[in-house]
Simulated assay, not measured.
Amino acid sequence: MRLDAYRHIRRGAWSVRRSSRVVGHVPTLILADVRFVVRQAARRRIVRTMQREVCAHVQGIPTDAARPLEARRVRFSPYAGPAFTLEDGTPIAAAALVFLGVDGACWAVMGDVECVR
């Protein structure tokens, strides 16, 4: 079953949604077959009003894989642009595996997945 996850800033955890309902909060999460989703109307509203709200999330299938080996850092800021990006500014829409860390970082593996336990 596909889940949505986004960073809950006040809790310092990842909120997990299933069918538009929050079902829990976790410190870390690993998802496979991931899509990066940005609601553009909400992003524009944030830029216009300067008030926070959830406008972006990752969507994928939970997995018990270990930490990705050659993962690349993924970032999102509604003020920086309309999409999730890699550190070099390249937009990203999907990934094979994503690790959502306790520190709020998002790491993605694009192709074949190798993990370390």
Rank of each mutant, 00 (worst) to 15 (best):
Arg2Phe: 14
Arg2Gly: 05
Leu3Arg: 13
Asp4Tyr: 11
Arg7Ala: 08
His8Tyr: 08
His8Leu: 06
His8Gly: 05
Arg10Ser: 10
Arg10Thr: 08
Arg10Met: 11
Gly12Leu: 10
Ala13Ser: 13
Ala13Glu: 15
Trp14His: 07
Trp14Cys: 09
Ser15Ala: 15
Arg17Asp: 15
Arg17Leu: 14
Arg18Glu: 14
Arg18Cys: 12
Arg18Tyr: 15
Ser19Asn: 15
Ser19Ala: 15
Ser19Trp: 12
Ser19Thr: 14
Arg21Ile: 14
Arg21Met: 12
Arg21Thr: 15
Val22Pro: 04
Val23Met: 07
Gly24Glu: 00
Gly24Met: 01
Gly24Ser: 05
His25Arg: 07
His25Thr: 06
Val26Ala: 06
Val26His: 09
Pro27Asn: 09
Thr28Ile: 03
Thr28Ser: 12
Leu29Pro: 01
Ile30Arg: 15
Ile30Gly: 02
Ile30His: 11
Leu31Pro: 02
Leu31Val: 03
Ala32Glu: 15
Asp33His: 11
Asp33Trp: 03
Asp33Ile: 02
Val34Met: 12
Val34Gln: 11
Arg35Thr: 14
Arg35Asp: 15
Phe36Gln: 08
Val38Tyr: 07
Val38Pro: 03
Arg39Tyr: 03
Ala41Glu: 14
Ala42Tyr: 07
Ala42Asn: 05
Arg43Trp: 02
Arg43Thr: 06
Arg45His: 14
Ile46Leu: 07
Val47Asp: 06
Arg48Phe: 13
Thr49Val: 04
Gln51Thr: 14
Gln51Pro: 01
Gln51Ser: 13
Arg52Trp: 15
Glu53Ser: 13
Val54Leu: 08
Val54Pro: 09
Val54Lys: 08
Ala56Asn: 12
Ala56Val: 06
Val58Ala: 04
Gln59Val: 12
Gln59Pro: 06
Gly60His: 08
Ile61Arg: 15
Pro62Cys: 11
Thr63His: 11
Ala65Phe: 13
Ala66Trp: 06
Arg67Met: 09
Pro68Ile: 13
Ala71Leu: 07
Ala71Lys: 10
Arg75Asn: 08
Phe76Leu: 01
Phe76His: 01
Pro78Ser: 10
Pro78Gln: 12
Pro78Val: 05
Tyr79Trp: 08
Tyr79Asp: 08
Ala80Lys: 11
Ala80Phe: 00
Ala80Asp: 11
Ala83Ile: 00
Phe84Asn: 02
Phe84Gln: 06
Thr85Asp: 03
Thr85Glu: 09
Thr85Ala: 10
Leu86Met: 09
Leu86Trp: 07
Glu87Asp: 12
Glu87Gln: 09
Glu87Ser: 13
Glu87Cys: 04
Asp88Met: 02
Thr90Met: 05
Thr90Lys: 01
Pro91Glu: 08
Pro91Tyr: 05
Ile92Met: 02
Ala93Trp: 04
Ala93Arg: 12
Ala93Asp: 12
Ala93Leu: 09
Ala95Gly: 06
Ala95Cys: 03
Ala96Asp: 02
Leu97Arg: 13
Leu97Asn: 02
Val98His: 03
Leu100Thr: 00
Leu100Trp: 00
Leu100Asn: 01
Gly101Thr: 00
Val102Pro: 00
Val102Ala: 12
Asp103Asn: 14
Ala105Met: 10
Cys106Leu: 14
Cys106Trp: 03
Trp107Lys: 02
Trp107His: 11
Ala108Met: 05
Ala108Phe: 05
Val109Asn: 06
Gly111Val: 05
Gly111Leu: 05
Gly111Trp: 04
Asp112Gln: 09
Glu114Gln: 11
Glu114Arg: 09
Val116Arg: 14
Arg117Met: 04
Arg117Trp: 04
